[in-house]
């Protein structure tokens, strides 16, 4: 197998004495959609924040195409081809949708200096995600579904090799979710690798090639979606031990 696009080795994050993520290792192969699931507080977002440079890891290493990028700041990670979307959308509200994406075109891996060229690139990306009809609307005035798309369009306009999507379907209705998952599939077919965190297990199982389950900050299981679904440890983490008194409660570690 070729060198993975991202290698994570024993990544650990402590908040005070509490390990939010502990000794998590994995490798993301190129052009995969690599999913992460786990109960609330399992450490999915913390893991993402470390990879995207928003949080400094307490220990461990992150390598992008063999290059160590542990502790790099977000803006330099973007230049190395790692972009992210946020669970809670954060558009530049006083800018138009087009201008939002234009910023990404300017400062992403393409590093476009000319304004007109950046706008052109932004328009293409907007058309690609199906948001071109909103190009001149203020970002504050579009629906949540469109804001999620804008979040994705901005990340894409930085021309990433690896895209980190944090709950991109959160708050969307089933129809919008379906459309968003189709979009993720198209992004992958376009050559971008995706790491995908989602609460909705069905959504993850539908698009991912490979899934990792986190529980209490540690890797519980990983494998193909169908393997994960039948893994007894996973079922236990989500539903509790068969025969335990409170169904649905989490096992005591």
């Amino acid at each position: 197998m070729a060198t993975p696009i991202l290698e994570v080795e024993k990544l650990t994050k402590y908040f005070g004495g509490l390990a939010a993520v502990k000794d998590v290792s994995f490798a993301v192969p190129e052009q995969h959609i690599y999913g992460f699931i786990g109960p609330n507080g399992a450490g999915k977002t913390t893991l993402f924040n470390m990879i995207a440079g928003a949080l400094e890891p307490s220990a461990g290493h992150i390598r992008s195409r063999g290059k160590d990028v542990t502790g790099h700041r977000p803006f330099s990670l973007v230049k190395s081809g790692i972009a992210r979307t946020h669970q809670i959308v954060c558009p530049f509200r006083a800018m138009t949708v087009l201008e939002n994406v234009q910023v990404a075109a300017h400062f992403g891996r393409k590093n476009i200096t000319r304004t007109a060229a950046a706008r052109d690139h932004a328009r293409q990306v907007l058309a690609w995600v199906g948001l071109d009809h909103q190009a001149d609307t203020l970002a504050a005035n579009i629906s949540l579904g469109d804001q999620k798309r804008l979040e994705l369009a901005r990340a894409l306009a930085t021309d990433p090799e690896l895209l980190l999507c944090d709950e991109i379907c959160g708050g969307l209705n089933p129809k919008e979710t379906r459309a968003m998952l189709d979009l993720l599939e198209r992004i992958r077919q376009n050559g971008t690798t995706i790491m995908y965190v989602e609460h909705d297990v069905k959504a993850i199982m539908a698009v991912c090639d490979h899934v990792m389950v986190l529980n209490y900050g540690q890797k519980l299981a990983e494998g193909k979606p169908e393997e994960i679904q039948n893994d007894p440890a996973v079922i236990e983490a989500y539903l509790g031990k068969a025969g335990s008194q409170k169904k649905g409660s989490r096992p005591v570690a």
Binding site: F75, V78, F92
Partner: peptide
């Protein structure tokens, strides 16, 4: 933060 996530330092 959002600016930094898009490559602005």
């Amino acid at each position: 933060e959002a600016a930094a996530d898009l490559g602005v330092n």
